[in-house]
Design a protein around this nucleic acid. Structure first.
Lengths: 133, 133
DNA sequence: CTTGACCTTCCAGTGACGGGAAGTTCTATT
DNA sequence: AATAGAACTTCCCGTCACTGGAAGGTCAAG
């Protein structure tokens, strides 16, 4: 199976698939002409990677998940630990962004937003007033 | 004022301050010996940039904010538009992360997380079951 | 036999810096 | 005056996970 077909079947761009080979994440066989040859199992793993990346796992997380996936004797606790750590990172990021949103939102609301030059947003950024950032 | 003093006064690392010069965001004067010379106003702008970056504005946003800040005749509506756009981006990011969190969280909860090898997280990623991702 | 689709490798760029090397200038102490 | 060391300079590489593009080889159709 050529890379173009693997691209269609997995939903990952060919560029990304080649990149995954570069970093040793998924190394396919080669045909006689030098073309990459993706087996069904490879395509399956590519789709696996696409889903894991879509859930925000890093490449290194994906590498670990793939090796756990291939390990018939893994403990589900190992997978859960990985996912749990990632979950905490996401929640921390959400909290951080919510803080930003609140700060920014109150600035935007305070700004009358018309043709006049005085602007609470710039005042806050310039530090001339004691804003809430 | 040398860059070290500007670093102390603004709270930005010297590396970052030099980078801001590289990209033309804040270009200081030079002393006779070639050292950068930061005026009080420059330090003020650095602190401005630090706050704006802390609110998650991109460098290009910061460039626009700085030029609005220096424009005595700006309309506050222009600033508000910029901040509002950024606010929407943050809210979209929050919503995206919340979706991830929900998907991941239900997977983590479904996984018993013990020594057994069967794991709903990997099942979902592998696409063998119809998961909610 | 040619056209064009598909494949290959390699190089460069993204955003916003951070690390570190190699060399220059300043400051403090001896 | 000499010297140690702190602070400064420029320059280049690495980050993360790709993406774009150039230059060239291979394949299927007409």
């Amino acid at each position: 199976m050529n890379i173009g077909a693997a691209e269609q079947a997995s939903g990952l761009p060919a560029k990304t698939i080649r990149y995954y080979e570069d970093i040793g994440l998924l190394v396919p066989a080669r045909q006689d002409n030098g073309y990459r040859d993706y087996a069904h199992n490879d395509v399956h793993k590519l789709a696996f990677l696409k889903r894991a990346r879509g859930l925000g796992f890093s490449i290194e997380d994906c590498r670990a998940l793939l090796s756990l996936y291939e390990d018939r004797n893994r403990a589900s606790a190992d997978v859960r630990t990985l996912a749990d750590t990632h979950l905490h990172r996401i929640e921390a990021k959400i909290a951080e962004l919510q803080g930003l949103r609140d700060a920014l939102s109150s600035l935007v609301e305070a700004c009358h937003g018309d043709a006049r030059p005085d602007c609470p947003i710039l005042d806050d950024l310039s530090g001339t007033q004691d804003g809430n950032s």
